[in-house]
Design a protein around this nucleic acid. Sequence first.
RNA 1: GCGCCCGUAGCUCAGGCGGAUAGAGCAUCGGCCUUCUAAGCCGAGGGUCGCAGGUUCGAGUCCUGCCGGGCGCGCCA
Length: 520
Amino acid sequence: MTVERARDAKHGDFATNVALRLAKSARRSPRELAQAIVAALPASSLIARAEVAGAGFINFFLTPDAYARELGRIHELGERYGCSALGRGERVVVEFVSANPTGPLHVGHGRQAALGDALSSLLEAQGYQVTREYYYNDAGAQIQNLALSVQARARAVAPGQPGWPKDGYAGEYIQDVAREFRTAQGDIDDLDAVRAFAVAYLRNEQDRDLKEFGLEFDVYSLESSLYRDGSLDAAVAGLIASGKTYESEGALWLRTTEYGDDKDRVVRKSDGSFTYFVPDVAYHVTKWRRGFRKAINVQGSDHHGTIARVRAGLQALSLGIPQGYPEYLLHQMVKVTRGGEEVKISKRAGSYVTLRDLIDWVGRDAVRFFLVSRKADAEFVFDLDLARSRSEDNPVYYVQYAHARVASVMKQLAARGLELDRAAGLASAGLLTGEHEQAVLAALVRYPEVLEQAALNRAPHAVVHYLRELANAFHTYYNAETFIVDDAPLRNARLALVLGVQQVIRNGLGLLGVSAPEGM
RNA sequence: GCGCCCGUAGCUCAGGCGGAUAGAGCAUCGGCCUUCUAAGCCGAGGGUCGCAGGUUCGAGUCCUGCCGGGCGCGCCA
């Protein structure tokens, strides 16, 4: 049995199927039972009426007073409206982007950045204490490859020429790194120096892009630190101590199949080095040890194969870490299209489109809004033609425009020598009984629930869809009614209402990392 | 072959722990600016919710099978 928000305004504000569910055991018809329930309901200042509809639903209609009270809360709480204490201050680490410093961030990282940051903000709004964390490999085979590529470029060796490393990075940015290294008068023969320079250079470039995206991480974790501080050795020792390892073909394996993985995994290769699986496990042990009882990893679905093995490794260590740790939010790939054709290359990176490209083409707000607007597990098609040449059709403008329009109304008010009496407006909010006013109020008061559900379901896109609906209710109201009327009580009430809309839009866009302009 | 995800309007997608006539944007067609920004509003057309079974009072939603697409699959990360 449920009580839920009615989908259709004709069905009131809330509906319950209680009579449908109980009809059988009560041996009465659903409608008859519903009538009896309605007749027995106590009076409430918040419920205007309850009526039986359809097969036996009971629909509840809220009183204008109920709405007026909620509007008052929006004004009272301001930017805190929509927040809750659901998380009770629990610490949670959200790991995302986590790109290795081997090149510019690509559009997939962009999706992850938009998704991870919005999810983090949502969790913060629900009372969690969130750490945004970025993990990267600064010492592995990929980094070696990067160093060799930069070294080759510094020696004026181009991709494909003799001396170019096997599977070297061919992007144009490698030339930039090589040139900067020479300018800094680095020793080209010192591969360690080249490596350190290249990693620092590209990390710095990534951070610039992330900053431009409005994103800052609290913690950067380096894979190399796991080797240095003993975490990795401890993890290996723990795995061996678990008795779940065995030697085969010269390598050390872990029976991850005992913990739900579909194949056993190699811990230590036959050449004595470790697979990436080991630092992954060691890294997640550090999350647990740092006190994070909740860890969420935002990753591309191409990494979904790692989930079972990381969890299996953590289970094998018997540290009391729950089976579902860490939690994963996977997102599907991003495909960029232009003229109906997939775009796979960019000047700077060569083989992929960069986050920077997207920001340059359509702006940060649109990239943020777009990339978070679809549920994570659906493939995303980013149509450059639509985003660029038809930028006025961008849904982000639709929402931002609603915000700017309210600002404009307030400017008009001042220009006419009038002032808003906010307290009077809230006191007379009971006057907001028009169809459009009720629709706006109904949309407005859903916000806290939307945030809670979006946070619990790890679904930031729900906020995007909500904001579009709220903006639609507002624009409709705007076109149908004049706010600045002579009747002062009504004028104040209407202005209090639209300021409430502006507040909620600002709050919602803020969670998504999108600006809320005063004018457009 | 096995695993995860997706399949809803011409296109891009919401709805998905079961509920009432399946929604939005874009595109198409038709209306609305002497009045707070027309980046807006109103209306119309457009659907066997991939297919077939099953569970249920009720299935786009849950279960099974199949078809189509994406991603991944023992010492790469």
